[in-house]
Design a protein around this nucleic acid. Structure first.
Length: 351
DNA sequence: TCTGGGGTCCTTACTCTA
DNA sequence: TCTGTAGAGTAAGGACCC
């Protein structure tokens, strides 16, 4: 035995999830909002189109949750305070938190604006102490609370941080999977969305434990080798995926939902030209060129079409992006009112 | 009167070429 | 030369995530 892996060296992954992040940052700026039901989303006007990005825990008591239309949230909770999304401010606060996390371990994976994974295998001290220290530092520096999960892999760490919210700290080991993870709804597994959940229910699978009980072969048969294998490992709590410390964008896109569905080509064309310019200028600013331009159209009935064109040479030229986008648009018959227009550039290369 | 925006990844179908 | 097919690249759609 080489003894390369010895006891005490088991991998330890920590997942940090900021509590109701956007709403909490707004409450920092306006302390009079603290304790009130706050909803952050869209333009902040709940009579206009838009969805909830974050609801404070007080607002959640009224049944308001993220991804819900603002108009529905207003009906459920007329006394809620509605605020527009101020992405720059949240990004600023997020950056400070990420910098702090990096001081605990340089092996950090950034997951969106309010989450991160840290590999704390090499960090001295017991897991509960490390978890508490991180929570304390975040609170002292920002006034914000977060929920932390620690486990042998990313998947279990994420489930752990989700178990006690807000302001929770949960540590899960392989021996806890049976009692703490298997009773949870299958939907709690990352990668299981509403469609998969419904399909599973139709097969009599409701909990993560049900999933584990069906076994690997059954899952591969129902979901294909790749996703089936993933579901099995996820249900067993053994799914391993690496901490990705560097991220490069694969596409840049902009889209716009009209306040009122557009019936005329001119409105759609104007929006398309604007979005194409925005995409191209973002690419220039970030130093990327793209080979494929895709146009997305969503009709009033929510039917969504995309048309794409791959260029011979990569580009970041506004005129080329716009011209290509219009060529794609020309392949779509606008026989219904248009709800949304989008432009995406993919096949990115650093300039 | 519903259902944002910015992404990633996967599957499937099609076309072209070797 | 004909035919079948494998593989790459492209296109389209869908599920999912924050």
């Amino acid at each position: 035995m080489s003894g390369e892996i010895t006891e005490g060296e088991a991998k330890r992954i920590l997942h940090v999830d900021m509590d109701a992040f956007f709403a909490s940052v707004e409450c920092l700026r306006r302390p009079e909002l603290k304790g009130r039901p706050v909803v952050v989303g869209g333009s902040g006007d709940p009579t206009r189109r838009g969805v909830v990005s974050t609801a404070s825990y007080e607002a959640r008591r009224f049944g308001v949750h993220s991804a819900m239309p603002l108009r529905t949230a207003l009906k459920l909770c007329p006394q809620c305070v509605f605020l527009p999304v101020d992405y720059n401010e949240y990004a600023r606060v997020s950056l400070g938190i990420k910098k702090m996390l990096l001081e605990t371990s340089p092996l950090m994976e950034d997951v969106g604006i309010d989450e991160a994974y840290l590999d704390i295998t090499g960090v001295a001290g017991p897991s509960p102490e490390i978890g508490r220290a991180i929570k304390d530092r975040v609170l002292k520096a920002t006034g914000l609370t977060c929920s932390v999960g620690i486990a042998p892999n990313k998947l279990l760490a994420k489930i752990a941080s989700d178990l006690r919210k807000p302001d929770g700290l949960t540590i899960l080991g392989p021996e806890d999977v049976r009692d703490s993870v298997w009773p949870l709804a299958a939907r709690r597994l990352p990668g299981v969305g509403p469609k998969t959940e419904e399909f599973l229910k139709g097969l009599g699978v409701n909990t993560i434990g049900d999933l584990a009980a069906r076994g690997r072969e059954w899952l591969r048969e129902k979901f294909g080798t790749s996703f089936g294998q993933y579901l099995y490992e996820a249900a067993m709590g053994t799914h391993e995926s690496p901490i990705v410390t560097e991220w490069k964008p694969k596409s840049v896109s902009r889209e716009e939902t009209f306040e009122r569905d557009a019936a005329d080509w001119q409105t759609v064309a104007r929006a398309l030209a604007f979005l194409a310019r925005d995409v191209a200028s973002t690419m220039r600013r970030e130093g990327y060129t793209a080979r494929t331009i895709t146009v997305k159209i969503r009709f009033e009935d929510f039917r969504t079409l995309t048309r794409a064109r791959t260029l011979r040479q990569e580009t970041d030229d506004v005129d080329v992006v716009r011209k290509t986008a219009f060529e794609c648009l020309g392949r779509i018959e606008l026989d219904k009112r248009v709800r949304l227009v989008g432009v995406r550039a993919s096949g990115l290369k650093a300039r």
